[in-house]
């Protein structure tokens, strides 16, 4: 699957300007904080509308400033894993996980081939014991596992992950990273992974896009990850 991404977005002290194709399957957006990685992710996810550009995902136009096309977040088939998990505090883990599948039930009914199965996700991320709990009682690492599962169970075409490990300590990071690696072999969902941690990116990504000050300064693919 191919993602063509062109966007220009100016704010007071920051300008994003990039035109690129993500080939994946796992693309890392790598760079220091303030380089525009999360901005790119927000634009892809429909949470931020750039001033100019065009986004085509798997042949679907999500954004075209000239044609005045903007598909809002809820109509894009994405899964978004936030740095701060953002679980719904009033719902149990189980309901947090079911909400995406329920909201996209018509998509699930139409496109059965690409369905992500509940048991697979719960099993892979080891969530069986947590389903009845409320998010507030979970550790940071557990919350992030639920966040990843929630995004997967929304049946995404593209998985967007925004520094999913950055809020965790070293031990938790080492706990979650293998889960993220296993995602790919199990579900093969194209993923855009934002991170400023080189070792993470080198372990997970097939393609590394290095950003600085809102622009792309390097693209590496295959095994040539000598950054």
């Amino acid at each position: 699957m191919k993602i063509d991404f062109t966007a220009k977005h100016k704010r007071k002290d920051f300008t994003l300007d990039m035109a690129l194709s993500f080939e994946g399957p796992v693309t890392a957006l790598f760079g220091p904080s303030g380089s525009g990685k999360t901005t790119v992710l927000n634009i892809l996810g429909g949470l931020l509308r750039p001033q100019e550009g065009r986004i085509v995902v798997d042949g679907e136009v999500w954004f075209d400033s000239q044609a005045k096309i903007w598909v809002p977040a809820h109509k894009r088939r994405i899964g978004y894993v936030f740095q701060d998990a953002r679980l719904f505090p009033h719902l149990s883990v189980g309901l947090n996980l079911r909400i995406g599948g329920w909201l996209r039930r018509s998509v699930r009914a139409k496109d059965k081939r690409s369905n992500v199965e509940w048991d697979d996700v719960i099993d892979l991320l080891g969530l069986n014991q947590l389903l009845a709990r409320k998010p507030g009682t979970l550790s940071g690492g557990e919350q992030q596992r639920v966040g990843i599962a929630r995004a997967l169970l929304a049946n995404p075409k593209v998985l967007l992950m925004d520094e999913p490990l950055a809020a965790l300590d070293e031990a938790r990071r080492a706990e979650i990273l293998p889960y993220i690696e296993r995602l790919q072999s199990r579900f093969a969902i194209p993923t855009i992974y934002v991170s400023h941690a080189r070792e993470e990116v080198e372990r997970i990504a097939d393609e590394i896009i290095t950003m600085k000050d809102g622009s792309v300064v390097g693209v590496r693919r295959g095994s040539d990850f000598s950054l």
Binding site: L47, F82, R86, V107
Partner: peptide, 12 residues
């Protein structure tokens, strides 16, 4: 941010 999270899950 929670409302944003809901929209990424497909909630209008």
């Amino acid at each position: 941010k929670l409302e944003q999270a809901a929209s990424t899950l497909g909630a209008s």
